[in-house]
């Protein structure tokens, strides 16, 4: 459903994304991982039209959406969340989510009802009338998801929605994401929380310094020497393999 071909982006000489090709199949949960500064967020920004790629193409539902405006891409059914949360502060949680709902719903009352429904789904049901600016980090992350979800997307791009959450909050949000997929929303997520990547994704892409260095089933990718090196530094893969020969069951 999402088809990214040879996507590149450089910022004043810095190659943030370098010739990246990825596919996301309908109905799956796909993850994008990599160390800090690997270019993951930039990839999402390129895919959703927030940055113009230096080269490469993006197809969504077999339509070329390269260089399309973000709001038009959202209207087509692909919606992103922001790693750095961006609530409409000063408006209530309900009003925040309703803006998303209004993408497909014209009536105010219906949009507010939909907002309430979505809030309950992501665990914000008790905070509907709270100012979005007063939410905790966990609350704001949920609000990002809720607002995107309210647009009724086909493909949801989640950028580190678990960063800053404690382990029990992470345990709470994993089933929410699974539920979304079961309801027919395809999910593409950036995540540092390995527990989540492992338990959620059908397929994983690994990015390092702008380049795709591995892809496949998460368990397989996690054993890839190149991936281990990208995360832990040179020589680490070999040492782990040596140790593993002795202790691995």
């Amino acid at each position: 459903m999402l088809d990214v071909k040879a996507l590149s982006k450089s910022f004043q000489g810095l190659q943030a994304v370098d010739n990246v090709t990825m596919k996301v199949a309908e109905g799956s949960i796909v993850s994008l991982i990599g160390p800090n500064g690997a270019g993951k967020t930039t990839c999402f920004a390129l895919i959703t039209g927030f940055h113009a790629p230096t080269s490469g193409t993006v197809h969504f539902d077999a339509t070329d959406i390269t260089n399309m405006k973000p709001h038009r891409i959202a209207t087509r059914g692909m919606v992103r969340t922001f790693q750095i949360v961006q609530p409409f502060a000063g408006q209530t949680v309900r009003e925040n989510i309703a803006v998303g709902a209004h993408l497909k719903i014209a009536g105010r009352r219906d949009a507010l009802n939909k907002a309430q429904e979505i809030a309950a789904k992501v665990g914000l049901g008790a905070m509907l009338d709270q100012d979005a600016g007063d939410l905790t980090v966990a609350g704001r992350k949920r609000l990002e998801v809720a607002r995107a979800l309210a647009t009724d997307p086909k493909l949801l791009l989640l950028d580190e929605v678990m960063a800053g959450l404690n382990p029990s909050e992470i345990r709470d949000i994993i089933p929410v994401i699974k539920l979304l997929r079961d309801e027919g929303v395809t999910i593409f997520l950036i995540e540092h929380v390995m527990q989540a990547v492992m338990s959620l994704s059908d397929h994983t892409f690994v990015l390092n310094q702008g380049k795709l260095i591995a892809e496949g089933a998460p368990a397989k990718v996690a054993r890839d020497p190149q991936v281990i090196e990208a995360y832990l530094g040179k020589g680490m893969a070999k040492r782990m393999a040596d140790q593993g020969a002795g202790s691995d069951a």
Partner: peptide, 21 residues
């Protein structure tokens, strides 16, 4: 709807665009 969208754009243009405004 229009007013809700105006306030969304007022408060955060990027976030509004991301959800189709």
């Amino acid at each position: 709807r229009l007013g809700a969208r105006m306030m969304a754009v007022r408060d955060n243009e990027e976030a509004a665009a991301a959800i189709g405004v």
